[in-house]
């Protein structure tokens, strides 16, 4: 089928298998490899993107279910001149990134959390990030990064 979406502000039309995961469409057909596929089963959050303004696990969305959707991936966060989004910048400055595999998903979840709740409490940050697993950082610096970004976006 031909799948039409808007990805990072650009209209796209791409030939896909209808049950193909949105993640595969993004990575393999559109070359947007920011979203990762650590588990492929909804468990880890490494594939988190925004679909119609909400975070989804792109590994669990059938291509046919994304028809007409607005999709935002990590590639769409930075300004056109390459200046990082304040959430990304906060992750860099807080030292929240180690191997980086989980980080694009973390950043998208943090971005979405702060959109919905610009001043989250510590408990709300933990709840907002609870679908994103990280095998390196121990999470504390991730929470610090979200806090830092919240302060700056306010």
């Amino acid at each position: 089928m031909e799948l039409k979406m808007n990805v990072n502000g650009q209209p796209v039309a791409v030939e896909v298998a209808p049950t193909e995961p949105l993640l595969q469409v993004l990575r393999e057909r559109l070359g947007l490899v920011g979203a990762k596929e650590p588990c492929g089963k909804g468990e880890c959050g490494g594939c988190t993107v925004l679909m119609n303004g909400q975070t989804v696990n792109a590994c669990l969305v059938m291509a046919a279910q994304a028809e007409g959707a607005e999709v935002l991936t990590v590639e769409g966060l930075a300004a056109p001149d390459g200046k990082l989004h304040p959430v990304q910048q906060a992750f860099v400055e807080a030292g929240a990134v180690q191997c980086g595999y989980c980080m694009t998903g973390m950043v998208m979840s943090a971005f979405s959390l702060l959109q919905q709740n610009p001043q989250p409490t510590e408990a709300e940050i933990k709840e907002g990030m609870e679908g994103n697993l990280c095998r390196c950082t121990g999470y504390q610096k991730v929470f610090d990064a979200v806090n830092l970004a919240a302060g700056r976006l306010r």
Binding site: T19, L60, V61, Q65
Partner: peptide, 26 residues
């Protein structure tokens, strides 16, 4: 049927659910 797909896609990928067609309810 498939609604949010959060069970359906996992079971489909694992080959546990193999429907002849999905009916997307969204």
């Amino acid at each position: 049927p498939v609604a949010g797909g959060t069970d359906a896609m996992v079971r489909f990928k694992d080959g546990v659910w193999r429907p002849t067609a999905w009916v997307n309810l969204l």
